[in-house]
Design a protein around this nucleic acid. Structure first.
Lengths: 244, 244
DNA sequence: TCAAAAGTGTTGACTTTACACCCATGA
DNA sequence: TCATGGGTGTAAAGTCAACACTTTTGA
């Protein structure tokens, strides 16, 4: 079969570049949860001698026959037993020497889960929730990755209804406010907070009350279903329209 | 040398995972410029038979001894002859079948350059500026990548002084406004636009006037040097502080 | 009856939008 | 003298920040 002049087939191109198929690609998941009024992240003790005693994010190499996004879902599923959770790509880290095993480029994702719903076997596998505030040092460049994902979470929190993925289905406005305060590391004014949430029109009043609280119970709300997106990925048609 | 129980060295880990070092990693650059009152992007005719006649972004495989960010700078330098330009990572695309040569995951960057300063040899290498508005179909998943980068540019434009990378050093407020209008695809009110720019306090009044315009010349400005960052990458210390 | 949090409005400061006229220059 | 864009202000609407008291419940 004659080839067009100047063009090469993909197969030919692959052969001429085989040397390059020599970088491993991993994904690392920053899995956030909210518990005890603190933002937590799920970490595992590093099993590399080089990072003995340090913690790392949950990650794995991407398989040849696996989409990048699928790899991050797989890790989440394997580690937490959860399906259908919020997961979003954040950034890819590709310094030459970031991994002692060789050239490994990693794509970081962040995930938001309801800590009550996971299915972790936390006891036997060195997997633990860590308060984000207390984390100083991590294996690899994982502290940088964590910081980057935390910043992304903060940005997203302020513009989109994503934090509800960290709460149980029913929650009070106090719980919601405390969650925002934990994520943003700020104190918020109760009246202004409630006004702002009311304007967003994200919530349904369940006409139910908190129970088992040692004080006056608050009303319970849930997120309107149309905002329960699992990811926040933007469609290319969602352009920002601005006027000045 | 004795090993700690349960730990493995990075070297051992690499051996056990050698199969995975089999995905190629590329970077693709969405190089924007502004010319003739339109936002343009630099594209090249695809040299793959599969995409005969279609255009693609400028990309290349990442070398084994090259940082991911360095790879994107290299492509930009090789293609435009420019150093020290604005370049920022946007997203990584990793569908299994996005590339006919095999498994190639690509990290997309966007770049903003002054069209007058480049050093392209546009004539002999099928490299051309295309009006972003007119682009319908591209090779690979490059249309999706372009759309994603355009959205990122729009978001960044509204919050940070990045668009100045698309202008010559000296510019008039009219040029600046037309640039924003081209990027955002909106019409802006002149008085409100000037007020808004004045409040940002990004510009230095050069006390010079436009020349060779067929109407009353406007004042020329330049960006204050402290805003002339080449990239907009966030330091992890730059937390958003919010009050509600 | 005490402790804890629920629930609720107003004011002033600021920001955003909409909108129109005269001026300076070059052709 | 005409065409083109330069340059400028104000009023109304909306948003944001600061701030305090009464109510309800459980202990």
């Amino acid at each position: 079969m004659a080839k067009s002049i100047g063009l090469k087939t993909a197969e030919l191109e692959k052969i001429s570049h085989l040397d390059y198929f020599n970088i491993a690609l991993s994904v690392d998941c920053v899995i956030f949860a909210y518990d005890e009024k603190e933002l937590k992240v799920l970490l595992i003790k590093s099993d590399l001698e080089e990072f003995s005693g340090m913690y790392s994010l949950l990650g794995d190499l991407v398989r040849l026959d696996e989409d990048l996004d699928a790899a991050s879902y797989r890790i989440l599923r394997e580690r937490t037993g959860m399906e259908d959770v919020f997961l979003e790509q954040v950034h890819t880290f590709g310094s030459i020497n970031r991994h002692p095993s060789g050239r490994v480029v990693t794509t970081a994702y962040y995930s938001l889960i309801d800590v009550k719903h996971h299915n972790l076997r936390l006891n036997n596998n060195e997997l633990h929730w860590h308060s984000v505030k207390g984390i100083k040092k991590m294996a690899f460049d994982h502290k940088t990755i964590l910081d980057t994902c935390l910043n992304r979470l903060r940005e997203q929190s302020m513009e989109h209804p994503v934090v509800f993925n960290l709460l149980p289905e029913k929650f009070s406005l106090r719980e919601l406010q405390e969650l925002y305060e934990a994520i943003l590391s700020v104190e918020l004014d109760r009246r202004n907070f409630r006004k702002k949430i009311a304007i967003k029109d994200w919530l349904i009043d369940l006409n139910q009350m908190e129970e088992d609280v040692p004080h006056r119970p608050g009303k319970l709300y849930k997120l309107k279903p149309e905002f329960r997106k699992k990811t926040n990925r933007k469609k290319s048609s969602e352009n920002n329209i601005v006027s000045v």
